[in-house]
Each structure stands twice: as structure tokens, then as C-alpha cells.
Design a protein around this nucleic acid. Structure first.
Lengths: 217, 217
DNA sequence: AATCGGTCCGACCGATCGGTCGGTTTTCTG
DNA sequence: CAGAAAACCGACCGATCGGTCGGACCGATT
């Protein structure tokens, strides 16, 4: 590691990642040029290619970084213990906190989940993205299963509920102008975040709670 | 109108729109070239520019078309009457039906909602997109308000709930490979659609229902 | 037959794309 | 201080980008 890592100034590599993250989030993979990234990081284009050998690798690296942040927070949140419903609500809240802390994250996360064509799909970088997603979805699924067998959640298909939960967690903070227009205020305003989080937790708390009867698996 | 409109074969303009819709949905605005669209429609690039004077206009036109389909279905669904909760569940189900009927719709819809930079933002085309979105969100908000004052839904912030509902409706059918991997089966498989729809409606039915007490506005 | 509007196309334009290369400067290390 | 390694950059490459232009082809009108 260089001396810069002891300073508060980020290394060139991190600066590139920061810029790339924000640009990719806003305009997607194809919408961003390497020149633009280089300019944003105050570097020549060749220097960007020195740190990342291709555009696809840079994109993957940016995705891996934010997915890692998610993974860290989620695993830490899950480790804190409590009943399944307590843990579920806490970890949804924490995930939203991560999204809010870095406004570009939600969009890039959403993109990495639903844009298949951009990612390399294979190679070490693609595997890292894939693994991170697994490491996030796996424990969430486990948590839901635990809650169901403990009788706290109503019985439902875990994978379908999981697929259903991603949308309301991520989309509001990826919605940009649309969300701002709908709410009349900035989605990332603390008061709005609190409101969104509250509504979502209410919905999940009640919507997933077990009725007195049980249905299908 | 030409004679082709009487045939079952779609006009060149419609063919272009079909191709553009599918390509834009998959790779986003910047990820699609006009040459690609032209090839897909079995036309020369110049011919595409004859029907749509710019790429931005083509993109807007594609968005307007799918938003219009949504709007139509939603308004028809809402007009059928019933209690607010019946109408809400029916129209969520119908919206999902539209998404499922045209697998590319969900992705393009999601993009048009959260990618601000692509759309022209102004001009007649941008206004049409904007208006369509308004025509969809407005009645939905009205429906929620009615349900709350009728005591069927719990009291909540309409706009926040609305923002929250979009995610679980649209995302599952835009999730592509990710969703397929999570479920182990194609998201658009009728059985899976039924399952997703069921889980979502369960979640909404219970999660929005009014408890015996009321809270904030 | 002449003409006209609509449709279509090949060729072309300047700009930008991702990426390479050779060489210079900076920084770490022995 | 010498030398290696890492970081950086300007110039350049072929390909592709969105878009234009002049003209060819067509069925319908007069």
C-alpha cells in the first residue's frame, strides 16, 4: 500500500471507483465513457486503464464494492440476534441506512440486479458479484425460514417473498426525480427516509405476521 | 394510414417500436444503437430516422406506448367498481397481467421511472411520458385515500405507500436472470406468476388493512 | 404522362467509443 | 544513490456512434 492510504486523501484507484460508481449509477454501463471517468478522477484515460484493464472490469469492481458494503452490514445486522421478526425488521432498516448513506448505491444495486447483459457474467469479477449476491440472499432466506418455522411469519414461499421484498427496499431510493416528484420532497431527506422506512416496516410487520391459521408451504 | 394497417402485418413504424422496446428494455438507452434497431426491423438506418427524427424521440415513443398500455388497463380496472380494497387488489393483479403479457414492459417501465437522464425531459414527447405517469399515479393515490377514509386501509402517508408499492409490483418481472436464479424457474412461467401475485396480494391485503386503532395521517 | 408525398436506402460526416503503445515522471526499495 | 516498479500521460487506432443527404422506388392523383 502506498503512503496515500495513511492520508485521508483516497488513492487514485478509489477515486476512480468513486467516480465510476456515481456515473454508472446515473447513466448505466453503456452510458458512461472511460474519458468521463478519467476526467472525474482528474486523470488521463490511459491511467484509468492502468488500474482497471477494461471497462467491464471497472464496472464489476464498482458493483463488487457496493455489494460488499451491503453484505458486511447485513451479516453484522443479522449477527446481533433477537427473534426472527426483530432481526428481519432491524436488517431491513439497516439495509435502507446503507442505501441512504450513499445515494448512488441504490441505483447501481438495482442495475446490477436487473441488467444481465452488462456484467461479464463469468471470470473472477463476475464470480465476485455472483458470490456477494448469494451471500446477501442466502442469510435473508434463512431468516425467513426460521421465522416461519418459529411461527412468527405466516407460511409462504421464501424465494417469492424474497423477490418481492427487494423492490420496496431498493426502488424508493433509486427512483430519483420520480420519487422526489411523488413525495414533493427529496427522497433522501432524513424525515422522508424515516417515513418510508416506517411505512415499509409496518407493511412487512403486519403483512408477514402469522395469522392463526396456516396455509401452503 | 397505409394498407398494411388492414393486414395483420404491422407497419414499419410499429416494427421499429417493437424492436426498440425490446432492445431498450434489455440494454437501456445508451446501450442500443440505431443500426441495431434498423437491423432488427429489417430496415436501413436512414429509414428509422425517417419515422423517428432522433434516438431520444424513439425512446420516448417506446416509453409512451407501454405507459399508455398501463394507463388503459389501470383506468379500465379502476372503473369496474367495488370496495377500495377489492379495487386495489384487482388493479394490482391487472397491472401484473400487463407486465407478464409483455415481458419487456417491466424493464422498460422500471427504466423510465428511475433513469432521469435519458428522457428528453421536455418537449411534447417528454410531456406525454410525464402525463402518462401522472395518469397512472393519480388514480392510484385517489384509491388509497378512499380506502383510508372508508376505514378499510390503515391510515398512512399515501405518497409514501405508493412509492413503496411500485417496487414489488414491477421489480420481480424486471429482475431477469436474477429472479430466475432466485426462484429456480422462469419468472414468467404462469405458475410462478400466480405465486408471486398471490404473495404480493397477501402482503398488501394484510399489510394495508386497518387495525382497530388508527395512528398518524 | 407528369407529378407528388411517403418510404426507403447507400454513402457519408464529425465525434466519440474502448483500448493500445511508447515513453516520462514519480515513488518505493535495496 | 541507483535501479526497479508503479503511476501517469499524449497520441494514436479501428470501430461505432447519432445523424444527414441526395436520390431511387412506389402507389395514388390529376
Amino acid at each position: 500500500m502506498t503512503l496515500a492510504s495513511l492520508d485521508n486523501e483516497p488513492s487514485s484507484r478509489d477515486r476512480i471507483l468513486d467516480v465510476a460508481e456515481s456515473l454508472f449509477a446515473r447513466r448505466g454501463y453503456a452510458g458512461v465513457g472511460m474519458k468521463e471517468v478519467a476526467d472525474g478522477a482528474s486523470l488521463g484515460k490511459s491511467s484509468v486503464f492502468h488500474h482497471f484493464k477494461s471497462k467491464a472490469e471497472l464496472y464489476s469492481a464498482a458493483c463488487v464494492r457496493i455489494l460488499g458494503a451491503f453484505e458486511d452490514r447485513l451479516l453484522r445486522s443479522l449477527a446481533e440476534g433477537g427473534t426472527p421478526s426483530v432481526r428481519l425488521e432491524r436488517c431491513i432498516g439497516d439495509l435502507i441506512d446503507v442505501l441512504v448513506a450513499h445515494p448512488t448505491h441504490a441505483r447501481l444495486l438495482l442495475r446490477s440486479l436487473f441488467e444481465d447483459d452488462d456484467l461479464p457474467q463469468d471470470g473472477p469479477e463476475g464470480a465476485a458479484v455472483y458470490g456477494s449476491i448469494q451471500n446477501i440472499m442466502g442469510p435473508m432466506a434463512k431468516l425467513l425460514r426460521e421465522g416461519m418455522s418459529a411461527g412468527e411469519f405466516r407460511l409462504a414461499s421464501v424465494s417469492h417473498v424474497l423477490l418481492l421484498l427487494i423492490g420496496p427496499i431498493v426502488f424508493p431510493f433509486a427512483s430519483g426525480d420520480f420519487g422526489e416528484q411523488l413525495l414533493g420532497k427529496d427522497v433522501f431527506d432524513p424525515a422522508q427516509v424515516r417515513r418510508i422506512k416506517g411505512e415499509l416496516l409496518d407493511l412487512v410487520r403486519v403483512g408477514l405476521s402469522a395469522p392463526n391459521n396456516a396455509r401452503e408451504e
